[in-house]
Simulated assay, not measured.
Amino acid sequence: MKKQLTLWILIILIFSSCATSKNQSARVEKGMASYYANKFNGRKTASGEKYHHNQMTAAHRTLPFGTIVQIKNLNNGKTVKVRINDRGPFVRGRIIDLSKKAARQLDMIREGVVPVEIRY
Rank of each mutant, 00 (worst) to 15 (best):
M1K: 10
M1T: 05
K2I: 05
K2S: 03
K3T: 12
Q4T: 05
L5M: 09
T6E: 07
L7F: 06
I9E: 12
I9W: 03
L10N: 09
L10G: 13
I11T: 13
I11L: 14
I11K: 05
I12H: 00
I14N: 12
S16W: 01
S17N: 03
C18H: 00
C18F: 09
A19V: 04
A19C: 09
N23V: 06
N23T: 06
Q24E: 10
S25D: 05
A26M: 03
A26E: 07
E29M: 12
G31L: 01
G31F: 02
G31A: 04
G31Q: 04
M32V: 09
M32L: 15
S34Q: 00
Y35M: 05
Y36E: 12
A37H: 15
A37M: 11
N38V: 03
K39A: 15
K39Y: 12
F40W: 14
G42Q: 08
G42I: 04
R43W: 00
K44C: 00
T45K: 08
T45M: 10
A46P: 07
A46F: 04
A46M: 10
S47A: 01
S47D: 01
S47C: 02
G48M: 04
K50T: 04
K50A: 12
Y51L: 04
Y51M: 05
H52T: 02
H52I: 03
H53W: 04
H53Q: 14
N54H: 12
Q55M: 14
Q55N: 14
M56N: 06
T57D: 12
H60C: 11
H60S: 09
L63Y: 10
L63W: 01
L63C: 07
L63N: 03
P64C: 11
F65V: 02
F65M: 02
G66Q: 00
G66N: 07
G66C: 05
T67G: 06
T67K: 09
I68K: 13
I68P: 00
V69H: 11
V69A: 14
Q70G: 11
Q70C: 07
N73A: 07
N73K: 06
N73G: 06
N75E: 13
N76W: 15
K78L: 15
K78R: 15
T79F: 13
T79P: 13
K81H: 13
V82M: 02
V82G: 00
V82D: 02
N85P: 10
N85G: 08
D86E: 13
D86W: 05
D86S: 12
R87D: 15
F90R: 06
R92Q: 15
R94Q: 13
R94K: 14
I95P: 01
D97F: 01
L98H: 03
L98V: 12
S99A: 11
S99T: 10
S99W: 03
S99H: 02
K101S: 13
K101P: 03
A103N: 06
A103E: 04
A103M: 07
Q105S: 15
Q105M: 15
Q105V: 11
L106P: 03
D107W: 00
D107M: 01
M108Q: 10
M108L: 14
M108F: 12
I109K: 09
R110I: 09
R110W: 06
E111M: 10
G112D: 15
G112K: 13
G112E: 15
V113C: 07
V113N: 04
V113S: 05
V113A: 05
V114Y: 11
V114H: 04
P115Q: 06
P115Y: 00
V116N: 05
V116K: 01
E117P: 03
E117C: 06
I118A: 02
R119T: 14
